[in-house]
Amino acid sequence: MKQLYLSIPLLCGMIMLPWLVQGQTPSDGIMMQKNQYCVVMLYEKSSFDQYWEGTLLRENATIETVHRHMVNGGLAIGFADWFNLLVNLPYVSTYSIQPNGGHFAGASGIQDLSIYLKAAIKDFEMESGTISILGTVGFSTPASDYLSDYRPYSLGFGANELSLRTILEYNNNKNWYLRGSLAYLFRGETKAERDYYYNNGSYYSFWMDVPNAWNYQAVAGAWLFDGSLQLEAQYTGIKSVSGDDIRPYNAAQPTNRVNNNTIGLFAHYHFPKPVGLGVVAYTSQTIAGRNSGKSFQIGGGLTYYFNL
């Protein structure tokens, strides 16, 4: 019963990029079955010492190397074989290594609470395998009073986000799969602590518009060792549909047009005993971007699923 054994729906694409802060994206093609539950605890760290100021890749000794650590707790519930609920709450801390020219304090705290509804929409059985169409609707909202207008140390972009995602997955009978997903992220406004800012012109308000964005992912993966090890190579991108560029040698702000592309590897191993326990590890590197850090990221953690 491979499907039950491997149902860990919460992990793929859980990439938190500094300055990007795209949040958790349940973009995998796996559904949990009815009455199945899953808890996840992850630790992740990332850092960058170069970033794109607009399209210019640069260094900046004012912030030197910016580090970001995250502890993320998640829960997934199978209400039905075709309908899952996923919940996520990360704790984030950020800082620059010493010495640096800016002497800025980092930030830490609870970031955003995310809730996703995930549905299996349609399966197409074929001789070589199965094509599945899935969809998610997600909502995330800041879960503390962190300041989004404090780049690059802010914990997140500080606005509500509604995401709509479609996932298309081909599962070959020989235990490999290909997956693509495309999401549109509707992002609201974030409240700064100043009521004037420049965004290619004056804005007289505490509110900053966080650009909406497309989020896309292409994955090739395989189930190895009788399905106990899942391996994936991932290509992930985010592309804002509006926003301004970081100005020369100036701080970033939530109104920026943030784009980036990352490549990553992901592995998830399920222990034979105790049943339900798994360990996960992943890494990624930003390879292109705009108004984004060129981050290297590594993370890992434990997963445990059970039936009630």
Binding site: G135, V137, F139, N160, L162, L164, F186, G188, E189, G201, S202, Y203, Y204, S205, W207, M208, D209
Partner: peptide, 18 residues
């Protein structure tokens, strides 16, 4: 999903520039 979008986009306000 569509209903949620409609509700969500209704929350966006015009930000004054002058």
């Amino acid at each position: 999903a569509l209903l949620t979008i409609l509700l969500f986009s209704a929350c966006d306000r015009e930000i004054p520039i002058q």
